[in-house]
């Protein structure tokens, strides 16, 4: 064999060997679609529509058996009041389970209430909050036992039979969306009402909102009207700088809302 032929053959052999088997495989589009489900649930919150009635919190607690008396909730509504002399108040009495039936600001258990002069109120609004079901959630990363996870269609769930209640995920969540279930003694969080959305129903909170402030959509379906809003209008997410890629989008965010 000549040196030239040897070089040629070597190059051909290397080139042939470097083609992976998978490149020669014929790809069936149906198989690819089945492996990557065309559903990814996302949430849209319009803070302009919210009036702070708290029906969403009540519906959520009822649907998911979260004790009413305990000061924990999977979803909550915050009230932001800005006064004309540039003071800002934020409160969420009992996660707004009973709405905001008091014009005074709830400063907390030991601080009581503070009156705000109605003439002094500059602007005020309500912001519903819930788990953002992030695309790269920090909470599921830190779980030492594999009890909390992100499903293929988006929602972040907790395996109640496997959770050891260590609370790492509660600390890791930048949004404070997780809590310790006082009765089950495991971590609990919003599931996007997984038992409802997988049956084609709305979540309990979306269902209960009379004003359409909360909406859900499949963000992979660009014909979905709610997805269209997320794609085309000016929406924001909370705490983008944490890099968790939240999937709850807000219309009408202010910089104080975090």
């Amino acid at each position: 064999m000549k040196r030239r032929d040897f070089m040629k053959n070597t190059i051909v052999a290397i080139a042939g060997a470097s083609v992976p088997l998978s490149a020669l495989e014929f790809i069936d589009p149906k198989e690819v679609l089945a492996a990557n489900p065309d559903i990814h649930w996302a949430f849209l919150i319009n803070t302009y529509s919210c009036v702070g009635c708290g029906f969403c919190v009540k519906a959520c607690k009822t649907e998911n058996d979260i004790p009413f008396e305990a000061n924990v909730s999977r979803t909550w509504v915050e009230r932001y009041v800005y006064t004309k002399d540039d003071r800002r108040y934020i409160d969420s009495p009992k996660a707004a389970l009973n709405g905001f039936i008091d014009a005074r600001i709830d400063l907390g258990e030991h601080l009581g209430y503070e009156d705000v002069d109605p003439d002094n109120v500059g602007k005020a609004f309500f912001v519903p909050k819930l788990c953002n079901h992030c695309a790269t959630p920090s909470c599921t990363q830190v779980c030492p036992v594999g009890a909390t996870y992100k499903t293929d269609d988006g929602p972040v769930l907790v395996d109640r039979s496997w959770c050891i209640g260590c609370g790492y995920c509660i600390m890791a969540c930048p949004f404070g969306a997780r809590f310790f279930h006082p009765e089950l003694k495991v971590v609990d969080k919003c599931t996007f009402c997984y038992h409802r959305i997988t049956k084609g129903l709305e979540t309990a909170c979306v269902n209960a909102c009379p004003f359409g402030a909360r909406k859900m959509c499949n963000i992979k379906d660009i014909n979905d009207p709610v997805t269209q809003v997320i794609l085309n209008e000016r929406v924001g997410v909370l705490k983008d700088e944490f890099g968790t890629k939240p999937q709850a989008f807000y219309i009408g965010l202010a910089s104080e809302v975090r």
Binding site: T140, G146, T148, L157, W162, Y194, H195, R196
Partner: peptide, 18 residues
């Protein structure tokens, strides 16, 4: 992000509707 017991997804799907 998603190491978990695959059976648990069904547990959540089977929660009762109210």
């Amino acid at each position: 992000y998603s190491y978990h017991n695959k059976d648990n997804e069904q547990v959540w799907k089977d929660q009762p509707l109210k």
